[in-house]
Each structure stands twice: as C-alpha cells, then as structure tokens.
Design a protein around this nucleic acid. Sequence first.
RNA 1: CUCUCCGUAGCUCAGCUGGCAGAGCAAAUGACUCUUAAUCAUUGGGUCGAUGGUUCGAAUCCAUCCGGGGAGACCA
Length: 576
Amino acid sequence: MQALSDQEQYRRQAVEELRSLGIDPFPAEGYEVDTMAADIHRDFRPGEARFSNVSLAGRIMSRRIMGAASFAEIQDASGRIQLYFKRDELCPGEDKTLYNTVFKRLLDIGDIIGVKGDVFITQMGEITVHVREFTLLCKALRPLPVVKEKEDVTFDAFRDPELRYRQRYVDLIVNPEVREIFVKRTRLVNAMRQFLNDRGYLEVETPILQPLYGGAAARPFTTHHNTLDMKLYLRIANELYLKRLIVGGFDGVYEFSKDFRNEGMSRFHNPEFTQMELYVAYRDYEWMMNLVEEMVEHLALALHGNTVVRVGEHEINFARPWKRYTMYEVIREFSGIDISRMTEAALIDVARDLGIQTEAGMGKGKLIDAIFGEKCEPLLIQPTFITDYPVEMSPLAKRHRSAEGLVERFEAICNGKEICNAFSELNDPIDQRRRFEEQLELGRRGDLESMVLDEDFLRALEFGMPPTAGLGIGIDRLTMIMTNQPSIQEVLFFPQMKPEIITQEVEGNEAANPFSQMGVPDAWASILARLGFSNPEQLRKTNPNKLFNDLGGLRKKLKLDIPALKIEEIRAWLEG
RNA sequence: CUCUCCGUAGCUCAGCUGGCAGAGCAAAUGACUCUUAAUCAUUGGGUCGAUGGUUCGAAUCCAUCCGGGGAGACCA
C-alpha cells in the first residue's frame, strides 16, 4: 500500500466499507439501460410521460453536494447528463446510510453507476434525471483528472501529450473532442469501404508476416518463427500480394492494412500505420486518378457534408477536378529549373545549388524526389496530382506510354504531404526483373531502402497479369486532414512510445535473487523485481542509463537506506 | 542522430536574482434540500525526472543521463 497516493488509499478503503455494507463494488450482473444521455437532451419536453421512468448508466464526472440533496453528472457513451439525488426520497425511513454513507462518502468521481428515475428541468433550467434508485456498477480505484468548464472556458484541461497518449483511456473519458476524432476516423474508413464495395471490389486479407518484404522503399522490422526457424519480416506494403491476386483472376481487390516501417518517428510517421491499397484490372493510372478524386470528395462530403475542410490555417477544397502537374512541370514551376533532360551528375549539382544534401547512394530517382520534396511538396496545399515520375524511383510502375524515361505514376499531395500513391502497374516480367536488379545495385551502393528481388512475384507475373491500376492511400494522413489534427499521434489510439516503467507491488520473497549471478546485491534485486524485472535476460536488454535513472528514483521514493548506485556498477551487471 | 523547450501534489500550474516546497481543482472531516468551475470552514497530501558536482545551504547554478513536446536529418 506504500506506493499508493492518499486518494487511492481512500478509494480502496471505500471498497472494503462497501463490502461490509453488503454492496459489491464490482458486481457481476449487467445493468438494463433503456436511455442514453443524448436521447434525453434531444427529445425531452416537459410534461411528457416518455421519460418518466428511465434507466441509464455511466461514469460520475462531477458532484455538488448540498447536505440532504446533491447534483452529479454522469457520462455515458453519448455524453453527459445531470442527476439529482435527494436523501429523504432515497432513504424514506430512519436509516439514511444509502445516501449519507454510500452516495456521499463511498462514491467518487470516476465510479460507474446505474440510475433509474424521471426527467425534469431544474430551477436553473437544466435537464436532469431525478434519481429514485441507484446501483454501483464499478468502483474506480484511481482518481480521474477533473476538467471543468464554464462559458466555453476549460479549466485544468488534461493536455499533456505524454499522459494523453500513454493513458488514452483517461484522455477519452475527459476529452470528448478526442473521442470525436476517432469516431470520424471510423466513419471515414466505413465510407471508403462502402465506396469500394459499391463498385464491386473484393476486400481481402494478405500476410503481415512475410519471408521477403517488398512493394515500397522502406526498411522493415524483422521477427523470427520458431518452428520454421526462419527470419520473417513485417510487411511494409501489400502491393506484391495483391497483384498476385490480380494474376489469380480477381479483377478488383483492396485491403485496409496495417503496415510497418522501421524508420524515424515524427508527427507524420508512426512505426505502424494504416494504408488502403486497391488494384483494379484493365484500368490505368488516368482512370485511377479520377477514382481518387471522386472517392476523396465523397469522403469529405460523408464526414462534413461539404467539400471544403478547414485544416490549420487553410481551407482545403476537395471538389473535383483537382489540379494536375507532371513531376517535371511542378519542379519547373516552383524552382524555375528544367530537369527533364539532366544526367545524374547534373542533378547532383542542381540539388547542391538548392541547398539539398546529397549522398553517394542516391540515384536519379532519389535526387529528383529530394528536389521535389524540398521545393514543391510543402507548397501544395490544395489537393494536387503529380504525375509521370522518373523510372528510377518507381520500380513497380509501368513505363510511360509516350514519354521516355518516365513511368505512369501519380501521387496526390494535400496540405503539403502525400496522401496517396498510384500507378499503372508494371506487368512485363522481364522489365520487372531488370528493375529489381537495378534496385539490388542501389542496395549495393548503400541504399538501405532499396527493394529486394522477389522470385515468386516474378513467377506470378510470368503467368500474365492484366493491365492493372494500383493505389495506396494513407488512412492516418487522410484522417489527420479530415479531422484537422497536426500530428499522427492524435489519430492513432495508441501511438508508439518508449516503454514506461510501471512499478509493481512485490510480495516479500526477498530470499530469491534471480540476478545474483550478474553480481546484483540482494538489496537491489528486490527493487528490480518492483520495476517488473524477473529474469537476467530481461535486464540485459535494458538501457543501463534508464535503469540507473529508475533505480535512483525508487531509492529516493522508498527512502532506502542504501547508497546510490554508480552507472559503472549497472554496466558491470549487464555485461557480467 | 542534431538543435530547442519542458519535467514540481491525483490534474493544471506558480516558485528558478540559491535561504523552511506553494496555489486552484481533486481528496479527507464538518455545514448546507434546485446546484452547476456550487458555496463556507478545517485538514492531509511531494522520487521538485535521476545521478554527480559547485556551495555553509540546490526545486533553483553546472555536467551527464532518463522521459516527453517542437523543429530538423533520415524517411512517405
């Protein structure tokens, strides 16, 4: 109990007191709910019988106790509603325990209760449930941050991003606008799925664990399968599997997929993210551009009833048609330089002149991409298609039907960021093999993201794939735009973060020291156990500096009478 | 990986020209029968992120480290 705050201790005591009064703080049975808070706010009219006996359930969010009568608010999935409790109605006889002790003293903000009663309007004009009967459904052992509001001013808002992301459940309880972001995200996905189903495309699922990774330029995560004793990769894209399905005779397949890329993290990049990839046979990239315009316009309308969406300082209009530039055109437009006939060496000079860092591993494609990313992309706020990329940066796209050295590819840029990427898919297996081999060469030059050669995919292409248009659209980034959020962490329930150490209560089995062989003294072994370490392997994987920091913290907190550790001692354990 | 800002009570934050750790909310106890950031009185609550240094004395100054935000690098 030592590690608990005073408020947590009070709540645990309340659990015991409730039990001694014969009230189960965590009852097993369900609670019959027939009304939501929002129903009452929307439909209640004074004098109507319809809300004379309602049953609802939710979490207590605030309380105002005035002796023998009280107001409280509960929050259910639809919102909040005020409750009115009156002692002498809840406890008509001599025994006032239910109100005085159970409600006033043993219930807290954060507890979940069910109530039955009738709806009325208070003297202050607020729609309120007059409680005739209440039931504790779950006692909360931790206090909730209390956020208050008056005349649209919020007090003590729960805003710290670290706490909000690590404890998203708390964020969702106290910040209703956060909840709304995720509801919109799901509505966006549903609208997109409906749009695709209406056109007859088949939603499919393909492997996340792959013996080879491919379909994008990115570094993968690796894992290991014990039975097969082999290395597996987490997919970076689903492209190659979906095209195998087009070979197999489906003529429109799509997948909403979690993809994994082992790269830097930022407000636009999370190690795992969601894409929707779509492949349609007998179509080309021109057709796909029209589909993307139509689909994204449709999503904006489905979410906002309007094609204009406010994003930060900008108003973005998704109404068709969107502006279209070729890659060379847009670079000429924004930098004044015509790079269409330049060699790799000339491009390196251009990049240098524009102040862009170049590296030995960069081929022509990466150089052009760098120039575009630096000089054009951030300036494209309204949805814009960029078409016809250099062949070097698009090893899976079909050569352009008329322009030498280019491929039939487009990206849609919006708010300065790519939201999708699509091409006429390369279906010439001989060309595809050559392009993979060029990627291998880039890999030898040090490009860690170059693609690997997938023999089975080539075999599939050799059986023949119809001309196909393919699309990948980033769901997280689209959601950021559609919900006006500045970072990807705000549209992911649980963004990736460094692990947090949670201290545990440990029973006094100090005799066993699993770390003794590593040279850890018994006194510190029990502290390690508290930090959740149970075996030496676990310990060895830990950053010694962090361990040092955390052990020092616990030593101080528990006021331990042992000298502080030195970082060298911890290093010695981990190496020993 | 680089730069930069931040880390103080359950939450939001003040204190930072070194000198006994503070406020509001939340909590405890009491008063109060339509309140709404309810009100009033009393009380408790702290790994000042960690370690080391400077100092008679460090939340405050310095160094290293941990965690996080922002910007960049890398990258979609």
